[in-house]
Design a protein around this nucleic acid. Structure first.
Lengths: 162, 162
DNA sequence: TGGATTGTTAGACTTAGTCTCGAAACCGAT
DNA sequence: ATCGGTTTCGAGACTAAGTCTAACAATCCA
């Protein structure tokens, strides 16, 4: 388990661009809306090039789900560590707290449809659902009803989203 | 209720472009995948201009959900006609039948991730959910528990999707 | 014949996302 | 100090989706 890549990484060191980009994006999303700001503007304010943006984020929509992605990773860790499903979910949910409202929510209020936002969020839901399904199938090894499994997993993720 | 706009519409008549586009797209999606065909190719084969495409479809992804959209509209009609929810859902589901597999499904098998496909499908799910929520709230006028309403609506849509 | 209305088209434009290549910054070893 | 190796950063070209505008074509009605 490499923790933080101490200080002897081969190659050029990162210029701490990631945090800079996140901050610039958060600012601009407040000033103008999400849909109203281009990647060019973000990288321009962050003082990095456009190529660097895609070096850190796979798509523009990823910016809306930074916090959620962190939470999902923690959930994954706990599940892999053998925690039971409900415990892991509650623990992670408690960690995030209400002050950590993801940008996605605040933006969906501002924007008209929020259609693109919800679309960008779908892969996260799918991932959580997949994680929980796997964990559930490990828990109840005997019950092989795949469909019922999916249903339970989906209803759980639905509860989480709410 | 205007049925089909008999034959005396003012203005230029449609050149039956819509069906032509749908057919061309279906062909190309089979030959090459969904992601592998551009809108230019589709309109080229259909013999219409690119602008005309966006005159009939709001986005490329809409092509995958033509059948589903028809079903949704029928569902809407039935609900507005006062049918009870479960009856309307069953009726529409019976209408579609298994031979009418939407392109979305066949394509998601072919493609790698199917991520974009599922994203393009989300608005449909949202719409169905919205319709059902509205109908349910009309049915049980007394129960104002908005959250429980949403939960029931969502679980119903989930069942439909499956 | 001459609007009024509607469908079609061409083309420019913006933006997200991909790709390639070269330069910059660091490492360890010679 | 210099030489590879390795990784990040940046510039620019490129594709493709989607928007927009303004012109053109076909039809109806008067």
């Amino acid at each position: 388990m490499e923790m933080k890549s101490e200080h002897n990484a081969p190659g050029r060191p990162r210029a701490s661009s990631r945090d800079t980009i996140e901050e610039a994006a958060a600012e601009l999303f407040l000033e103008q809306s999400y849909a109203g700001t281009t990647i060019d503007e973000i990288t321009q304010r962050a003082g990095v090039s456009r190529a660097t943006f895609f070096n850190y984020f796979a798509s523009k929509g990823d910016l809306l789900w930074i916090d959620a992605d962190h939470a999902i990773e923690r959930l994954d860790e706990r599940l892999n560590a053998g925690d039971c499903v409900s415990d892991a979910v509650m623990a992670v949910a408690a960690e995030v707290g209400p002050e950590r409202v993801p940008l996605a929510v605040t933006q969906s209020d501002v924007m008209g449809t929020g259609d693109e936002i919800v679309a960008s969020g779908l892969p996260r839901v799918a991932r959580v659902s997949s994680l929980i399904r796997a964990a559930l199938s490990r828990e109840a090894a005997g019950v092989t009803g795949g469909l019922e499994l999916s249903v339970r997993a989906n209803s759980l993720t639905g509860a989480i989203v709410a």
